[in-house]
Design a protein around this nucleic acid. Structure first.
Length: 424
RNA sequence: GGAAGGGUGGCCGAGCGGUUGAAGGCGGCGGCCUCGAAAGCCGUUGAGGGUCUUUCGGCUCUCCGUGAGUUCGAAUCUCACCCCUUCCGCCA
């Protein structure tokens, strides 16, 4: 959420940001509502002040044994007037809140302006796409040939867009999760967490999934619980409503969780394979930092995510999201894209963002500087480190052999009891 | 699911319907003491909003789990909900 004061004082900036994101906006409604709110608030506060003063007088009079009846009767009117105005104010406040909750973050000034993903600049490319002496197969063909992936049976159990792994496939998924968690905790200084996989509406609102993107989520019937679409949600909310000490920052958390996404509006897209599923595994990285260090922390977060691909020796590229492709809550985002030989293109496997104080304001996560009065909002960041299912897909496709077998990356072999190749 | 108890400031913990934004303690900060530190002593120390001011800051409103209600006045009374603890039941 943007600060109401900031929006009031920077209507043009907000307007421009919305346009850069390709979003329609109605800031006039905000402006009139905001003016109205403050006018009513001032009047209301004057009345409340009067009530406070007179109530004290009544107490004095009663203590002195005087008759306060006349004043009490007078205050009855004031009180009902206050109640009335509070109701009006509540209505306006609600309207303003819903406008503010619907405004996306302001892109950082360094973010390239662009319409959509076609204008995302490539920052760098790492590794060489493998050369094959045969036609590389897509991972779903390899997976079913090897007997480690079975989408047909998954569909019987649940439906379309669910995975079912067997044997070395399940083992590979688990090996990746452990490898990622070990790397981030031992080499990059993250604390491992294992959070709830369902969260309440408040937490979803804090990180920006709600109220605008409800249709992307799975909600439990008759419960105020949503399945998490990413560990970002529960992990960022660990510190909601807390005031941290400056010395505690930065805080680094990593978490393995399954992720659940409705994928509404993606009918017909990536219908085959592990790329777009209702349920997938992910190891997430989350940081809480001071405002002055958050962009440096974004760089190192990106490196931490990259290191996984580098160690797996998978070819990838780093792109930066342009204004038109930037997520709702993010101020700046880098994506990692891994090479997928069968499709001949790079696919997103990680997204690393700085949310600045956008989520912190919603979640009320603040910190106190030593020797300074007052509090400030922290900056939150997160990134995939990495999406596990897509990683399996990339390994299958990049390390496939002519006979349909798949080599296991060196760093994963110890996680798979020395297995170095998956054969049918 | 049944029964009981409880949710108060960074933390612990008092709190009669009317100078209680909240005693006391811990912690933090400043000072005295000391060569320095510890101990001890003294002082200070919540958050958010509105408004005024060039700054320091002033004035004011709100906040004692959440939301309604009673009242001139609510941390204190009523109701609903949420959460926590303990016991019983059920269960991985």
């Amino acid at each position: 959420m943007l600060e109401i004061k900031f929006v009031r004082q920077n209507l043009d900036t907000v307007q421009n940001a919305l346009e850069a994101r390709g979003q329609a906006s109605d800031l006039d409604t905000f402006k009139t509502g905001d003016d109205e709110r403050r006018a009513i608030l001032q009047e209301l506060e004057a009345l409340r002040h009067r009530r406070n003063v007179v109530s004290d007088q009544i107490a004095e009079m009663k203590k002195a044994g005087e008759d306060a009846e006349a004043v009490v009767i007078q205050m009855r009117d004031v009180s009902s007037k206050i109640k009335e105005m509070e109701k009006t104010l509540g209505g306006i406040q609600e309207k303003l809140d819903s406008i503010l909750l619907g405004l996306p973050n302001i892109p950082h000034s360094s973010v390239p302006v662009g319409q959509d993903e076609s204008e995302n600049p490539v920052i760098k490319t790492v590794g060489e796409p493998p050369k094959f002496t045969f036609d590389p197969k897509p991972h779903w063909e390899l997976g079913s040939h090897l007997g480690i992936l079975d989408f047909e049976r998954a569909a019987k159990i649940a439906g379309a867009r669910f995975p079912l792994y067997f044997g070395a496939g399940a083992g590979l998924e688990r090996a990746l999760i452990n490898f990622m968690l070990d790397t981030h905790t031992h080499s990059h200084g993250y604390t491992e967490t294992l959070p709830p996989f369902m969260v309440n509406r408040r937490s979803m609102t804090h990180t920006g999934q709600l109220p605008k993107f409800e249709e992307d989520l799975f909600k439990l019937a008759d419960w105020d619980y949503y399945l998490i679409p990413t560990a970002e949600v529960p992990v960022t909310n660990i510190h909601q409503d807390e005031i941290l000490n400056e010395e505690q920052l930065p805080i680094y958390y990593t978490a393995y969780t399954p992720c659940f996404r409705s994928e509404a509006g993606s009918y017909g897209k990536d219908t085959r394979g592990l790329i777009r599923q209702h349920q997938f595994n992910k190891v997430e990285l989350v940081k809480f930092t001071t405002p002055e260090s958050s962009y440096h922390e974004l760089e190192t977060l990106l490196q931490d995510a990259e290191s996984i691909l580098a160690e797996l020796k998978l070819p990838y590229q780093v792109i930066e999201l342009c204004t038109g492709d930037l997520g709702f809550s993010a101020a700046k985002t880098f994506d990692l894209e891994v090479w997928m030989p069968a499709q001949g293109l790079y696919r997103e496997i990680s997204s690393c963002s700085n949310f600045e104080n956008f989520q912190a304001r919603r979640a009320n996560i603040r910190f106190k500087r030593k020797g300074k009065k007052g509090t400030e909002l922290v900056h939150t960041l997160n990134g995939s480190g990495l999406a596990v299912g897509r990683c399996v897909a990339a390994i299958l496709e990049n390390l496939q052999q002519a006979d349909g077998s798949v080599r296991i990356p060196d760093v994963l072999q110890s996680y798979m009891r020395g297995m170095d190749i998956i054969k049918p």
